[in-house]
């Protein structure tokens, strides 16, 4: 009996170790193209009318306002409602190095928290959108999604990053 338990435990370890070292394979796609697919899925107007779209690798000012360290970025893009009173926002980042993913993720979490604070005493529908925000990481790619159809946008993000088989 004891032997069996030992064998089982050893097998479990192998399985767990196997999972850990498995590298996630992702498609190589530009964050700008990724954003276009996500916008489509979220029902945002094509070409992003009414939205400001900023390249975070080029715009140091906006990147620093979002507390995103540009030197950690391979690419990055930010979409935000321009004048409408809408909480909708999408950020897509590609980390230069996987070890920096946690730092970038923290910036996205802080941004979501700041948005929630801002909407707290205002329109309940918009606050609800912010509360249901999604932060997701696939390989070196990270995203923050604040949208009515956040889950559809997330699905588009996932699908676009699936490696072509």
């Amino acid at each position: 009996m004891k032997k069996w338990i030992l064998i089982m435990m050893a097998m479990m370890l192998v399985v767990v170790a196997g999972c850990g070292s498995k590298k996630v394979e992702v498609a190589n796609i530009q964050t700008a193209d990724l954003l276009v697919k996500m916008q489509e899925a979220g029902g945002f107007p094509p070409a992003g009318e009414g939205f400001d779209i900023v390249n975070l690798k080029e715009n140091a000012d906006i990147a620093s306002k979002l507390n995103i360290d540009q030197s950690l970025l391979a690419e990055g893009i930010y979409m935000k409602a321009l004048i409408n009173i809408r909480a909708d926002e999408i950020i897509v980042l590609k980390a230069m190095d996987e070890k920096d993913i946690a730092t970038l993720k923290k910036a996205l979490e802080d941004e979501a928290a700041a948005q929630q604070k801002m909407w707290e005493n205002y329109l309940p529908q918009e606050l609800d959108k912010v509360k249901k925000h999604i932060i997701k990481q696939v390989g070196p790619y990270l995203t923050l999604i604040i949208a009515e159809k956040a889950e559809d946008v997330e699905k588009a993000f996932d699908t676009a990053l699936q490696p072509a088989s």
Binding site: P124, Q125, L127, D128, E151, K155
Partner: peptide
């Protein structure tokens, strides 16, 4: 959809996916 009393949007039936 909304609670007038609490003035907030109420959670709706979530979409099912295996990933979720």
């Amino acid at each position: 959809k909304l609670s007038e009393f609490e003035n907030r949007a109420l959670a709706q039936l979530p979409q099912f996916t295996t990933a979720k």
